[in-house]
Design a binder for these strands. Sequence first.
DNA 1: CCCGGTCTTTTGTCCGGACTTGAAGGCCGT
DNA 2: ACGGCCTTCAAGTCCGGACAAAAGACCGGG
Lengths: 229, 229
Amino acid sequence: MAVTYRDIKADILGKITRGEWKPGSLIPGELELAETYGSARATVNRAMRELAEDGIIERKRKSGSRVRLSPLRQARFDIPIVRREIEERGAAYRYALVESEVVRAPDWVRARMGLSPGETVRHLVCLHFADGTPYQHEDRWINLAVLPQARDADFRSEGPNEWLVAHIPFSEAEISISATVADATLAAHLACAAGDPLLQIERSTRWHGRAVTYVRLVHHRGHRMTARY
Amino acid sequence: MAVTYRDIKADILGKITRGEWKPGSLIPGELELAETYGSARATVNRAMRELAEDGIIERKRKSGSRVRLSPLRQARFDIPIVRREIEERGAAYRYALVESEVVRAPDWVRARMGLSPGETVRHLVCLHFADGTPYQHEDRWINLAVLPQARDADFRSEGPNEWLVAHIPFSEAEISISATVADATLAAHLACAAGDPLLQIERSTRWHGRAVTYVRLVHHRGHRMTARY
DNA sequence: CCCGGTCTTTTGTCCGGACTTGAAGGCCGT
DNA sequence: ACGGCCTTCAAGTCCGGACAAAAGACCGGG
């Protein structure tokens, strides 16, 4: 059988983890590797390219490839739709709309979304339950200038997240994770004590450069996001 | 000039974001696309493969490629070494060792790291400062069965993170993010009030299947991790 | 009707060759 | 010493062709 690019990738990775090729050292050129593995240069290239994407090595034209000094540690977190996240844990999902209004955007929302003064937004507060216990509190603002259909949409049975992905196929987003503290209303909604530390995710989404929605997701007490790499 | 795989990728992505190819719909086969773009199938393949990696489309042999129903939202967070993180913000980095001991692993550490009873670990408590203000509190446990050199290493001037990457080139890790609350000692170290919510990262690292280190990083009040996608 | 085997389609991978691009290093004139 | 130009080299990309592998589709036997 021929050598696959996976074989080559695994072999090179092995040499690195076993310490044969130390951090900072130069790796043989693609041509040389292709010869030693008895494969085409394109195959070696694919292996090396993936190693570079994985943050294991660093590549530069002319200078060649070298093992990274400090392995670039990067973790990939999936940010699934809540319903999916809950169902994948084998729990029953339930959704509830707590509050809904159409208002002029308050200043702090305007600032975050980059709206002009006086623009109106649809403001929603929702709760997501897993097996009956509160899982996530959602505080969402939708820009009606971009999505006027959101003014009359009925969010009582369908969550805004689901509605949005059906109306905006794809978008850019900025997401940020922080810790916050439960105030009285959050505590009531999430069935925890006021003062409890809670994990909070904020996401602002834009479509063709225009702010579509800003959402603040506060998770139940003890929630953790996990990733492997 | 020839069409590059980037051109093709951008063009297809455009068709999707503009709604020409709706979520769930089938995308033309590679052969057909190669013809319309006037390029080789390998080039189209590269473009499609990357779109699949980015979570935009889904590919299956025989059935073809289709636009994802709900675009897989995944965010990549860089987990840099603290020193680098601080210096990249343009702040001055300072490190301090607070506590250091060699002990038998307490039960909760044993459980997390999967150690046998009676195994010894090096336990370190460190602080990382940015421009003089506390930035991160580090509570680290190193398995001396795997890294006996850690018993006598001097962590007074060099942080354990730096020491570790120099001694274990690469490793697998599980990382998990959660919110915690400042107790008295954390509050004192991080210059915040007891009861403040703090962002906490836990990471366990293994090398060739054996637990190397477990670390709990608690960030200063108000810290946030941000990513774009 | 169900079950397994075979066909066919589509993506996945590889090859060997070619040209392009970016950056390092040297050369030269000031 | 100091620019700016030119060479050179390694990675980056592309081509056209080929075979491999997965997974629907189809079909015949029980």
